[in-house]
Every structure is written in C-alpha cells, then in structure tokens.
Amino acid sequence: MSSVTLTREFTKGFLRENPVFVLLLGMCPTLGVTSSAINGLGMGLATTAVLLGSNIVIAVVKDLIPDKVRIPAFIVIIASFVTIIDLTMAAFLPPLHEQLGLFIPLIVVNCIILGRAEAFASRNTLVASAVDGLGMGLGFAFALTLLGAIREFLGAGAIFGLPVPFLFDNPILIFIMPPGAFIALGFLIAVVNTLREKAGA
C-alpha cells in the first residue's frame, strides 16, 4: 500500500468519514460524556487506544479466525482491551476515570470499534489497519473534544476549565445538560455537512 493511500486512510476519520459527524456512530458516548472539553478528549483518547489495539490484533489474527465465529472472536478481543484500559485508567488517571466512569465499559458496545474491525481490519494489512484505527480514533476524539469545548464554553463559561469572562458568571446551563448535547451536535453536523458539500464530497 502506497503512502498516499495510507495518508488517506489516516485523514478520512477527521472529516470525510468522521465517525461522529458523518457516520453517526457511537452516539451514546458522544452525547453522554461531552459536558466538558477534557471529558470529550479523555473519552476520545480511550476509544482511540482500544480501536488501535483491537484493529492491530484483529489484522494479525484475521486468517486464524474461522468466518462463522468472527464476531464473537472480535467481541472477546475488544472487551479485553476495554477492560485493560478501564483498569489502567482507574489506577493511573483516577480523576479522569471518575468523570468517565460509566462510559469506559460502554466502549465495548461502541459501534465504531466493531465496525472498523469488521469493515476494515478483517480485510486489510496490519499497517493499514493500525493507521485506520488511529485515524478513526483521533477523528472520534477530535469530534468529542470539539463538542465538549462548545458545550463547556456555552454551558459552564470555560474552556478546558479556564473561565471565560462574562459567560462564566452567566452560563447557558442547558448546554451542559443532556438536551444541550443534542442541540450542539445538531448544529455541528449541519456545519460539517455544509463544509463537505462545499468541498464537493
């Protein structure tokens, strides 16, 4: 595989095939954890780690897995990675783990992971799958961080915990509550769709 296509595999996750804005996969963590930029970033990076790991392992063992049992095999591999990340985060990054708590185990059922395993890693080489996992994961992290930053800015009057003058004293509370997640995501998807149309995608 030439480096041009590898670059393409890497960058597709950011806009062209962004899991959140374009594929609309993984909506549960997207809406649930993005009440602040740092939460979005943490969840995004945790998902990236799982995605990278599971894509690599699945690309390596894909020929050893009989077709009929591939889905259970993928799920066991993914679930193991998630639990390892969960325990490691709890031990070494406790404050972040406290915030993301419930959502880490939910990475298992995040469609992006199984989707990439099934659609990409089980058919492509190790290098391409690793690049795909990294690109998709970072695209997911980018989307969650952006959404988190917008919600935190409007709803708590801060960005990455740094207070913004005026808004900090008069935040628009609804944006850090669940309905705000839908509103902010809706506008973001509209913006991304406009950008993609302009780019002729």
Partner: peptide
C-alpha cells in the same frame, strides 16, 4: 483463511 469447521471454531 482457516475454514469454519466445528473443531476449528472450537479451538480458536
């Protein structure tokens, strides 16, 4: 690719 026979699936 490994074939989907019962022993194969079981072992894997």
């Amino acid at each position: 690719k490994l074939e989907s026979t019962l022993p194969n699936m079981f072992i894997v």
